[in-house]
């Protein structure tokens, strides 16, 4: 495992834990898209079914279990424990526009027409667009709390670092997975506009707010 990959995983973990802590400490999930969080729970579940079929390493197993556990805890906090603070009126992205096309694409473009492989492919495609309900919510309300911005930044950095990891692996190992690379590129591009706002505003101590 190279450094890009490891830092990518850490960044992903940081994002997930940051969001959990934010909700827990403030006792509120205002400004957080429950729909994006459900999509991420679906992504992890579909992708990590190989926990039951394929052992890779202790690191791999632990990270998968932690991602899944944190993801489901987040969904539970939003839709059950702190339901009263959930901003459903602003969380109006139509998730079927993401789930249906990515599911169809997973059936059409995959490495292997087997249930586990199709689910893995679906999870890769769905992950690349799963943040859209959250970004839509930020654009709708015109602002995001600083901690939510940090969460989004860490989540965007994760896939960006994976792109460098894939370049590294292609160069030194001759390994590449076109499905993951193309989806990872799409995913990273979706964060670009946010990266710009984060660097020009949040890092200068301002709250992220969009021009009206």
């Amino acid at each position: 495992m190279n450094l890009f990959r490891f830092l990518g995983d850490l960044s992903h973990l940081l994002a997930i834990i940051l969001l959990l802590l934010k909700i827990w400490k403030s006792r509120s999930c205002a400004g957080i898209s429950g729909k994006s969080q459900v999509l991420f729970a679906v992504v992890f579940t579909a992708r990590y079914l190989d926990l039951f079929t394929n052992y890779i390493s202790l690191y791999n197993t632990c990270m998968k279990v932690v991602y899944i556990a944190c993801s489901f805890t987040t969904v539970w906090l939003i839709y059950s424990k702190f339901k009263a603070t959930y901003d459903g009126n602003h969380d109006t992205f139509r998730v079927e526009f993401l789930v249906v096309p990515t599911a169809i694409l997973a059936f059409l473009v995959n490495h292997d027409f087997t249930p586990l492989e199709i689910l893995w492919t679906f999870s890769i495609y769905l992950e690349s667009v799963a943040i859209l309900p959250q970004l839509f919510m930020v654009s709708k309300t015109g602002e995001a709390e600083t901690i939510t911005s940090h969460y989004l930044f860490a989540l965007g950095v994760y896939r960006t670092l994976y792109l460098f990891n894939w370049i590294w692996r292609y160069h030194f190992e001759g390994f590449f997975d076109l499905i993951a690379i193309v989806a990872g590129l799409v995913q990273t591009v979706l964060y670009c506009d946010f990266f710009y706002l984060y660097i020009t505003k949040v890092l200068k101590g301002k709250k992220l707010s969009l021009p009206a």
Binding site: D9, D50, N54, H111, G174, F176
Partner: peptide, 10 residues
């Protein structure tokens, strides 16, 4: 190459 293989990435 780009084909189905054990997934070591997260």
């Amino acid at each position: 190459g780009s084909e189905s293989k054990p997934k070591d990435e997260l």
